[in-house]
Simulated scan of single mutants.
Amino acid sequence: MSLNLALQGKRVLVTGGTKGVGRAVVDLFIELGADVITTARVHSADMPSCLFVAADLATVDGCEAVVDAVGSHWGNVDIIVHVVGGSSSHGGGFAVLGEEAWRRELDLNLFPAVRLDRALIPAMLEQRHGVIIHVTSIQSQLPLPDATTAYAAAKAALSTYSKSLSKEISPKGVRVVRVSPGWVETEASVALAERLAQQAGTDIDGGKAIIMDSIGGIPIGRPSTPAEVASLIAFLASPLAASITGAEYVIDGGTVPTT
Results as ranks from 00 to 15, higher is better:
Ser2Lys: 05
Leu13Met: 09
Val14Met: 09
Thr15Gln: 00
Gly17Met: 06
Gly17Ser: 11
Gly17Leu: 08
Gly20His: 05
Val21Met: 15
Val21Ser: 08
Gly22Ser: 04
Ala34Leu: 04
Ala34Phe: 01
Ala40Ile: 12
Arg41Asn: 09
Val42Ile: 08
Val42Arg: 14
Ser44Ala: 13
Met47Ile: 14
Met47Pro: 01
Met47Asn: 07
Pro48Phe: 02
Val53Lys: 12
Ala55Trp: 00
Val60Met: 00
Asp61Asn: 10
Val66Asp: 04
Gly71Met: 08
Gly71Val: 05
His73Gln: 13
Asn76Tyr: 12
Asn76Lys: 08
Ile80Leu: 11
His82Tyr: 10
Ser87Asn: 14
Gly93His: 11
Phe94Ser: 14
Ala95Asn: 09
Ala95Ser: 15
Arg104Thr: 09
Leu106Cys: 07
Asn109Cys: 04
Arg115His: 02
Leu116Pro: 00
Leu116Cys: 01
Ala119Ser: 04
Ala119Asn: 03
Leu120Asp: 01
Pro122Met: 01
Leu125Phe: 11
Gln127Arg: 14
Ile133Ser: 02
His134Met: 02
Ile138Gly: 02
Gln141Ala: 10
Asp146Tyr: 06
Ala153Ser: 15
Ser162Thr: 13
Lys163Leu: 13
Pro171Arg: 12
Gly173Gln: 08
Val176Leu: 04
Val177Leu: 07
Arg178Leu: 06
Pro181Gly: 06
Pro181Val: 05
Trp183Thr: 11
Ala188Gly: 08
Ala188Leu: 08
Gln199Trp: 01
Thr202Gln: 11
Asp203Leu: 10
Asp205Tyr: 03
Lys208Met: 15
Ile210Cys: 05
Gly217Arg: 03
Ser224Pro: 03
Ala227Trp: 03
Ala230Ser: 10
Leu232Gly: 10
Leu236Asp: 06
Leu236Ser: 02
Thr245Trp: 14
Tyr249Pro: 05
